[in-house]
Design a protein around this nucleic acid. Structure first.
Lengths: 199, 199
DNA sequence: AGATAAACTCGAACGCGTTCGATTTTTAAG
DNA sequence: CTTAAAAATCGAACGCGTTCGAGTTTATCT
């Protein structure tokens, strides 16, 4: 007889998530109230707190869904063409376009992922997946002889990821306001990283 | 006769700021309520909204004070000694130590400065001041022959600033948890930027 | 000085995220 | 099938940021 509760629980959780995704996508995070979600999920307002402990947590669950979609774009192995810098730009611009597709969504997500309230394993795991993809890009560049054979892989991924962060910061602080500018800036920064700014 | 109102207004604004600084410093941002601030400033709760339109705005005013202090550390011209990388580390580690002095304060401030709700001239201005200091560091490195004479100064500052952002992200996401590790990581990243990761 | 407009003040009320507590449903043991 | 513990539900209430609106103070004009 074990399972009646678990099944219901899974269903209710799903109902909340579905309702939240729909509402966040149409009305946005801030304008969606917990009551809205509860109504759409056909449960009481307080019941939501059996499943999620804060509104932020519901948002992060929503993000998981969205981010999963964004990973799908990298699942098919990228046809290797062009130089390292082209691969990197392709990779980061997909990420960039995705996360800034909706201004508010991206801002909220980035705040939570870059400066989270508490250290969050889910965020780390997510980053790790992206770092793995990056590492593959670097390895294929090594094979082509564009990068040294011995390379501090970790710090190299961190390096380019940081430049990407800088581009996002530029976007959200209003230094750049078109996707083309972002790509142009990233191209310069990446080329600096590859060639070095020293003499 | 002009001035009675303006004078009072300035006094009240000052009283709010003073009260807020004291409370934020001791209780922290989230645990300080608008009512707390109003009580300490001896005005009504709603009156605060004549002077600031959100609680965030009061926080930013608090930050201005704090940041002004942090600039003071750079006002005395740094005695030029060591290589470019040493200067950069010195500069960014001061910033880092300052902003992470209080975990919550730093997180809140960075969220607002890197991913602000709306484009914010004050943030831009503040960044500009730091960029100017950075530019001086680069110029003196040029004079010493560590950097090429023609250099995309803007993107170079953005580059190192991005690496600094990456270090902050690593701190707040829990990748690194000691100041020493941060400094070591930054040293590696900076050296990559100067020498390049390409062959 | 008096009148009118503009700005300031603040208690009351609102909206919303979150918690409480009483009630109901499910589980597990005898 | 009882029965007692555990978990889930949800309306009511709380805390806090923000807004309203009515009353008060200051500035401007004649």
């Amino acid at each position: 007889m074990a399972g009646i509760r678990e099944q219901k629980k899974a269903e209710t959780r799903q109902a909340i998530t579905v309702a939240a995704v729909a509402l966040f996508s149409t009305k946005g995070y801030e304008k969606t109230s917990i009551e809205d979600i509860a109504r759409a999920a056909k449960i009481g307002k307080a019941t939501i707190y059996t499943y999620f402990s804060t509104k932020d947590e519901i948002f992060m669950s929503y993000c998981d869904d969205e981010l999963e979609d964004s990973f799908a774009q990298f699942r098919t192995p990228q046809f290797v063409e062009g130089q390292l810098i082209d691969h990197l730009l392709k990779f980061f611009m997909i990420k960039f376009r995705f996360v800034t597709k909706n201004h508010e969504f991206g801002r909220q997500l980035l705040r939570e992922m870059v400066f989270p309230k508490t250290i969050n394993e889910k965020v780390k795991e997510h980053d790790k997946r992206y770092f793995d993809i990056l590492e593959n890009i670097f390895r294929s560049a090594q094979k082509r002889g564009e990068l040294a054979g011995q390379l501090d892989m970790f710090h190299t991924t961190v390096h380019f990821y940081s430049l990407y962060l800088g581009a996002l910061a530029g976007w959200y602080t209003g230094y750049v306001d078109s996707v083309e500018e972002v790509e142009a800036a990233l191209r310069i920064l990446f080329s600096q990283a590859i060639e070095g700014v020293g003499v």
